[in-house]
Design a protein around this nucleic acid. Sequence first.
DNA 1: CCCCAAGTGGACTGACGGTCAACTTACGGT
DNA 2: ACCGTAAGTTGACCGTCAGTCCACTTGGGG
Lengths: 183, 183
Amino acid sequence: MERADAARNRRAILRATEELLATHGLEHVSMDRVAQAAGVGKGTVFHRFGNREGLMRAVVEERVRALSSALESGPPPLGPGAPPAERLAAFFDAVVALATKNVTVMAAFEQASTDRLNSPIYLSWHAHVAGLLASASPTLDADLTAHLLLGSLHSDLMIHLLRTGDSHRLAAGLRSMIETLLR
Amino acid sequence: MERADAARNRRAILRATEELLATHGLEHVSMDRVAQAAGVGKGTVFHRFGNREGLMRAVVEERVRALSSALESGPPPLGPGAPPAERLAAFFDAVVALATKNVTVMAAFEQASTDRLNSPIYLSWHAHVAGLLASASPTLDADLTAHLLLGSLHSDLMIHLLRTGDSHRLAAGLRSMIETLLR
DNA sequence: CCCCAAGTGGACTGACGGTCAACTTACGGT
DNA sequence: ACCGTAAGTTGACCGTCAGTCCACTTGGGG
């Protein structure tokens, strides 16, 4: 079990990280600053989260949890029940919205991550997309296509689209791309 | 003009960087080690290339130069003359082969780069792809689609595909994706 | 051959992620 | 109510990094 003070500190650290990421750029959010902002020693941060990657992953996982559960047990078209093509469209609408609202957090995670493509979040999203693609179109290379579609969530591109004011085009573009691929 | 010793050092630094990247992982290639391996002082490296990003960009540009000139003045289907769809397919075949052979170099550049999408190389590739897409299918969002297709060159994905032995599927997948999109 | 702009080198700085051993504390068992 | 201990906390410390700076050297045009 996790002691009460440990749980309190975990929450404090997560909130401090989120706030620092929101107010300053991700490059100014060092582990020292997180510790200071959370009012704990640096050792505590590392004891809780292992390393920078672990901390950023925890922050991302918090922001993503709602979508994850909606995917596996929510109402259609996001959850099970709707036809694959519709579920795919719904998923990308949702995930693009999520990524747009959390660019900085996602970017911080990507930067700290050594193997993005093996992170639990990416793996589950990839499995979800690949599975739906495969059941909607058996001739497609579902595994690879899933990677290509998920590549659109890369923070580089998100930041670029937000800066140029073109972010609204991403969801639409993906929708029509999916439609074309499954035709 | 660049003095003779300066030119010699520039080449030595570039070669040292390439060799270190090839033999050790990119995370073990520090500016100090590059300087030492090239037999020059660290100050010289920074004087020549500005910063880590500049050095890595220079290495990448060297590896990419042949493709760039083939695109704008080489024989079809890579160069001008062939129909857009064929030029696109040829481009992605070539660029995937290039990226496969130079994963480490590309990865080092990405990691050191602060704004990949505004680097000269990416800008020129994006313009090339977007232009061809637009002329082959006026209804497409060519600009966005070009970003999505070029996302497949991200080193994360390349490394993953190489590790799992699936790299050969990338070129094929892109070919059929382009064909589908332009149909 | 001389001069100086161009080039060089490496000690130095500040910041970083991560470690660790000494210290403190929550809390289940008695 | 108290105590023993496993769990948690801490910040000084470490090695490494990218980048700076200035005293010094040198290529090569006039």
